[in-house]
């Protein structure tokens, strides 16, 4: 709901509820608020927030908590009192010792976590489905991208037997050429997929095939990574330009097959 990670949010709210019910001490509240906000920013969203933004938010949180605790003499005294007791009273000596070990430990862990974080290149915004050209020429045959359809799609209703033949041919082409990267089940998880960036398309995804016209898919199959327009840069897709290896018919067949296999229909003309 609203892109939130509900179990986490509810759990945090529940802890807050318990604290309110038990009338927790100011210091406990401050620690809870800081911790809960950290957990919320870090895990509370279905799509994680970028680390840089989390840092900004946590900085503001810390600033706000410190200024709350110190914004009146009484509140400051109340907040600091348990800490003073922890340090001064003999019966908390064990807890104090534990804390004195834990704090540097925490810092050490933080340093360790920072250093062992896998190195990552900074990201560039890139279009996943860049705009296609208006016309496409494959094997000396020019089609209008806006109106072209898979020439064998209409057999699905007119001649199911012939349609089946084309799908079968598409299956052969797919498992001879495509499944290495796009996977047995077309999940974009073939045996070579982990070595590729950008990763191969996942054809099971409802956002991919059904959202594209079959002419778009044909364009991508025929022209591959080398035919990617400049608008999609930096783009280093490893997909070959299949027009150099396959006939036009084979390409339309595999196009038919991947739709048929996943049970999707290409996006209709003019449909948005």
């Amino acid at each position: 709901m609203w892109g939130l990670n509900l179990p986490i949010v509810l759990a945090l709210a529940a802890i807050g509820g318990v604290l309110a019910w038990r009338r927790a001490h100011t210091l406990v509240w401050l620690l809870y608020t800081g911790g809960a906000l950290w957990a919320f920013f870090r895990f509370g969203f279905a799509v994680p927030i970028p680390q840089s933004v989390v840092t900004i938010y946590l900085g503001i949180t810390v600033l706000a908590l410190v200024s709350y605790a110190s914004s009146s003499r009484e509140r400051l005294a109340e907040t600091v009192q348990p800490i003073q007791r922890l340090i001064l009273e003999p019966r908390y000596r064990l807890a104090l010792a534990g804390l004195l070990v834990a704090l540097p430990g925490l810092a050490a862990y933080n340093a360790y976590a920072d250093l062992t974080m896998p190195l990552e290149a900074p990201g560039f915004g890139r279009e996943i489905h860049p705009p296609p050209p208006t016309e496409l020429t494959v094997h000396d045959e020019t089609i209008d991208m806006a109106t072209a359809e898979n020439p064998y799609l209409h057999y699905k209703h007119d001649d199911p037997e012939l349609y089946g033949k084309h799908v079968e041919n598409g299956r052969r082409v797919y498992y001879e050429n495509c499944f290495w990267c796009h996977g047995d089940g077309m999940g974009g998880d073939g045996m070579f997929a982990h070595g590729l960036n950008p990763v191969p398309s996942n054809f099971n995804d409802v956002g991919t095939l059904p959202a594209l016209q079959s002419s778009f898919v044909h364009w991508r199959i025929a022209k591959g990574g080398p035919g990617m327009p400049a608008g999609g840069t930096p783009w280093d897709s490893a997909m070959p330009a299949w027009e150099k290896f396959l006939t036009t018919e084979e390409m339309w067949d595999v196009n038919l097959f991947i739709y048929d296999f996943n049970g999707y229909e290409p996006r209709a003309l003019g449909q948005h």
């Binding site: 927030i49 680390q51 840089s52 990552e120 290149a121 900074p122 990201g123 560039f124 915004g125």
Partner: peptide
């Protein structure tokens, strides 16, 4: 547009 890494994008 937040500063983000490849995996975050």
């Amino acid at each position: 547009y937040a500063i983000s890494s490849v995996s975050e994008i």
